[in-house]
Structure formats: structure tokens, C-alpha cells
């Protein structure tokens, strides 16, 4: 594979970087990243990965664009309200960079199908908006051995952690399972500062690119927390737990299960 004249210009600011160069750019172009959830986190992640020249971008979301999404889900435009999210996101990615091949998975993340999908990718971005999906992705990536970026946001705060399955602490090492009841605060009712998802989703894309290129230090073994109100970024150490139900010494989770079910029927909500 060699870069075309147009690619050399398009990716010039990447190539100039000592840690990227032409070889790194070619590696990005031959890489495959799956983004699960095309909402607040998935929007900036998809746009930056496309712009950076990640060659194959998988999009997984079974939702349609809702007017209430537009305050933060910047990949969807006003004219897209009512369209499938994967179709809306695909057209923006192709407009940003025709080098990026898009694979659309217009489905919800489910235990019976997620493993076959994620094994086609080199890195997974968990940009989902509910706990059952977050644990499902954690577990599926562990079973398939695919590195992924976990993130969650709430009101003015976000958190982020990269997991190399079997090597670094997983989501379940920190949070054993979904919080009881509605403790995690349901979607629309808690509110979220739109730009917060831009910050955290962009950090997820950063981790994906670093992992694909093998550069720098990944955010493994610690959970990064961010507060938009105080501008505090903090790294909280997160060690692997010997008694983790998934990646511990005596695991009790040995196959995928759907954690909980859809409990909210509000339009545009999937809790």
C-alpha cells in the first residue's frame, strides 16, 4: 500500500508527526474501528476517526435521530431528524473523508449477535447510553480479546477507561454490574451538557488512534474522570480484581447475557 498524492496532502499533519509518519498513516488506513452508539460520544469519535484516516469504521446503533439528540450528537443535522442513525452518520463520515469505508450495523447491541460483529474490528469504542449495553460490550470484548474504550457521561461529568482484555482492569473490575434500580439516573431526566460528550468522545477517539498505532501510554489501569464545572481531570487507579466475575481467577460469567432489559418507553430512549 502506498499513499496517493491526495492522501499525502490530506494526512500531512499526521505524517509530519514523528510517532505517525507514512507507516503509521498506512496502518490507520488499514485499521478497523467499531463505534457502538452514535449519540453524544459516538458522534465526535466517528468524525475524528474518519478525518484521521481510519480505513474502516463500523457503526452500530438501532436508533433513529430525534430532535432532542441534536444538542450534543453533532454528527446528526437538523435535516436528519427521523432518519436511521447509522445512515445519517455514514453520510457525514463519507463527506468528511471518502477514504473511510463505513460498515453499518443497524441493530441494538445484543448478546446473541455482538460477538460476531466485534471480532471483525481492531478496536471498539463503547459510546452507548445505558448500563446493560456497557457491560455487554465489556464482556464481549473480553471474550473476543478486542481492546476497547469505555466511557460514560452524566450531567457535567464524564469518565473514561481503556481496557486490554485479560491484561488490564475491565469495566467489571471497577463496577461489578449495573447499579440497582434507577441509580444511574435515566437518560433524559438527568440532563447532560452537550459539549461534555464532545470532550469525552474525542478522548475515546484519541485512545483508539494510540492503540492502533501502538504509541504513547493507553489509559489502562486507571479511570479518568472529568468535571466540566471545575475543569478537573483526575486519574483514579483501577487495578484488576482477582475476584472479578469476568476476568478474575474464578469467573462466574462465562458467556454473554443481556443485562436487564429496556425499561423506558419514552421516544428516543432505550433504557
Amino acid at each position: 500500500m502506498s499513499l496517493t498524492e491526495e492522501q499525502i496532502q490530506r494526512y500531512s499533519r499526521n505524517i509530519i508527526l514523528e510517532q505517525v509518519g507514512g507507516a503509521g498513516q498506512e496502518k490507520l488506513l488499514s485499521s478497523r474501528v467499531l463505534i457502538v452508539g452514535l449519540g453524544g460520544l459516538g458522534s465526535p469519535a466517528a468524525l475524528y476517526l474518519a478525518a484521521a484516516g481510519v480505513g474502516t469504521i463500523g457503526l452500530l446503533d438501532g436508533d433513529v435521530v430525534d430532535l432532542t439528540n441534536l444538542q450534543r450528537q453533532v454528527i446528526h443535522h437538523t435535516k436528519d431528524v427521523g432518519k436511521r442513525k447509522v445512515a445519517s452518520a455514514r453520510s457525514k463520515i463519507r463527506a468528511v473523508n471518502p477514504d473511510a469505508a463505513v460498515r453499518s450495523h443497524d441493530v441494538w447491541a445484543r448478546a446473541d449477535s455482538i460477538r460476531e460483529i466485534i471480532r471483525e474490528y481492531d478496536f471498539v469504542i463503547d459510546a452507548t447510553d445505558n448500563f446493560p449495553a456497557k457491560f455487554l460490550i465489556n464482556d464481549a470484548c473480553y471474550f473476543e480479546g478486542i481492546p476497547f474504550s469505555h466511557a460514560g457521561i452524566l450531567q457535567f461529568e464524564g469518565q473514561l477507561m481503556t481496557v486490554i482484555p485479560g491484561k488490564t482492569a475491565c469495566y467489571r473490575c471497577v463496577f461489578a454490574g449495573p447499579p440497582p434500580g434507577n441509580a444511574g439516573a435515566p437518560c433524559g431526566q438527568a440532563g447532560v451538557l452537550g459539549v461534555l460528550s464532545g470532550v469525552i468522545g474525542s478522548l475515546q477517539a484519541t485512545e483508539a488512534i494510540k492503540c492502533l498505532l501502538g504509541i504513547g501510554e493507553l489509559l489502562t489501569g486507571s479511570l479518568l474522570t472529568y468535571s466540566a464545572l471545575t475543569m478537573d481531570f483526575r486519574k483514579v487507579p483501577a487495578k484488576r480484581r482477582a475476584d472479578c466475575a469476568l476476568c478474575g481467577q474464578d469467573p462466574t460469567i462465562t458467556s454473554l447475557v443481556d443485562e436487564g432489559k429496556v425499561t423506558c418507553n419514552r421516544k428516543g430512549c432505550k433504557r
Partner: peptide, 10 residues
């Protein structure tokens, strides 16, 4: 002590 919130939003 670190108190780490469950954050399910995305």
C-alpha cells in the same frame, strides 16, 4: 477515598 460514580450516559 475515591468515590466513582456510575455514569451510564453516552
Amino acid at each position: 477515598i475515591e468515590l466513582i460514580k456510575f455514569m451510564g450516559g453516552g
